[in-house]
Design a protein around this nucleic acid. Sequence first.
DNA 1: GTTCATTTTGCAACCGGTTGCAAAAAGGCT
DNA 2: AGCCTTTTTGCAACCGGTTGCAAAATGAAC
Lengths: 335, 335
Amino acid sequence: MSITLKEVAERAGVSRSAVSRTFTEGASVSERTRRKVEKAARELGYRPNALASSLTTGRTKLIGLISNNFHNPIFLEVFDLFTRGLQERGLRPLLVNLSGAPDPAESLELLRQYSVDGVIVASSTLPPEFALSFRKAGIPVVHSFGRMASASQVHVVGIDNIECGRMAARTLMQRGYGRVAFLGGPEAATSTQDRFAGFLEVMEANPQVRCHYSFASQYSFDAGRVAMTKELITQPAEAYFCGDDVLSIGALSAIASAGLKVPGDIGLIGLNDMEMARWENINLTTIRQPIRQIIDGSIELIASTLQEPDRFPEARLFACQVIERGTLRPLPAKT
Amino acid sequence: MSITLKEVAERAGVSRSAVSRTFTEGASVSERTRRKVEKAARELGYRPNALASSLTTGRTKLIGLISNNFHNPIFLEVFDLFTRGLQERGLRPLLVNLSGAPDPAESLELLRQYSVDGVIVASSTLPPEFALSFRKAGIPVVHSFGRMASASQVHVVGIDNIECGRMAARTLMQRGYGRVAFLGGPEAATSTQDRFAGFLEVMEANPQVRCHYSFASQYSFDAGRVAMTKELITQPAEAYFCGDDVLSIGALSAIASAGLKVPGDIGLIGLNDMEMARWENINLTTIRQPIRQIIDGSIELIASTLQEPDRFPEARLFACQVIERGTLRPLPAKT
DNA sequence: GTTCATTTTGCAACCGGTTGCAAAAAGGCT
DNA sequence: AGCCTTTTTGCAACCGGTTGCAAAATGAAC
């Protein structure tokens, strides 16, 4: 079916090695044979079989891209940037969807079977141990959007979620809210835990402000909507820090349905600054997570780790920033 | 690094063929050796190398998943469903992002190099010729969300975009709008062309209604916003059929910014029924495209084509349906 | 035209599996 | 036990490449 090395060799009147060498960076071939081979290859439409060569070279240029966040619109951008960035470096993303909760261990075996060169775990909810299992199997791995453990064994690229929690709390304090709440994603998600921890830390330093919390079942519009609806039944807070923009938008929707106004009746601050947050009909005040930098950093890191597998584990954290829009009451006038 | 066939064979005290056969469906192995081999394999943590075996079997179980729609939130769901569905059948999606406009021909070569078993082109904007180039190269291909050409050479799964255009036009007619417009995606997109054609067809049968049209530069929020902003500068129509929900939402945003009301001042109907369309703060009247069926159908079709490569090209089209929400004026009361 | 260093080339073995074939083992029957 | 059929097994070749090594070709220097 496909053209092979041998056919090109025959047509060019050289050995198979000669053909292989013409297509191998930095191999020794004379100008004359190179031209003969290239001509024959062109005429036949030959392209070396990447899988066959991987057998001897040990490199497939395949990168496992694993995620379980297929309900958060921000991840469309994440996939876009990852695939583009990997492609530009000649790497091929093999996508693994962990949403249906198939056994994570199984995905390791799967990617081993396909001898991927490396793995990117793009998830803010998977525990560090998951990424670690790849490293233990000798596969270079980067955990994007992951939790930064102090003595981490794997590369992590992302943000300081604890600091984001603090930042959100401080922002609410500045606005003078007297009763606030944290509306998190799934309690098992490391990102939720950390954002919550940072939030609480600041709140404990401000005991005059009442504070409570609840958790949505997942990072999705519907879950956010359900959680906020529950809040509205009992006594809602004056302002909420939602653990993610998509939750915020679900919450906004619940608030609108209840006939309440934002930020008049209830204030809201999200996290991520996803595309929809700036849509005029949403206009969400939020904390921006620098997606592009996180992804570029992740790709850069996995690429370097392919060259140098025993590279010391590293954490790259990027600063976040409050984006002022229309879902929090304005700062009180300066005295 | 990794455990190989040979090591398992030695430990189990059998030949390499015996080991290979234990892991090959339907090969002849006695119960006794199978057990010996399985024991040895388990102890060593052996997994056959999928790439190596693909060399002889000619099957990689890799499926190229190609798209250029990384700015339309609907595609997050598309990727979710595709990856899940493929995984369930033991197929692995190799993702190719055509957004950065890299040469389409290059992506064919790339996927040939990785000897994918088949290809799914998930795009409503790529021309039929693109999918065709894979078929010509002998690679099974399904074009999802593609244009149904009458004598198509490739499998197509999707909707009848022309009929959707008609449906939108009829819906606007029923509401008694006197001046309507089509706000399409990129003019080069087959889906836009077809939706436009259907729309025009009905409008020509209703010459009493004034009608004009314009096109956004791509299927994205921003492009929709820009296009509608331009419309508002000149004399806008009473109601618009937007070629896609994401355009509609951009348009909604432009309308809101101009201080106009929907559906009071301007009516809007979209196409897709993406998740955000039902968010209360958007609440878009739209035409639902049955994503799940399209994707299940695509996967089913590519899987069958792997078995039977010369299967006759087939088109599977699914019906669409108007979803009534809040961006069109209500039907006039019955007389 | 030699001689020697350097580059280019082909041979053959290998990467990790699969598979046709013939020999060996097992099973059935008289 | 002997014969025949069926199943199981290992050998060896192959899939499409790469690569160490030694031989052949080239080029430089004398």
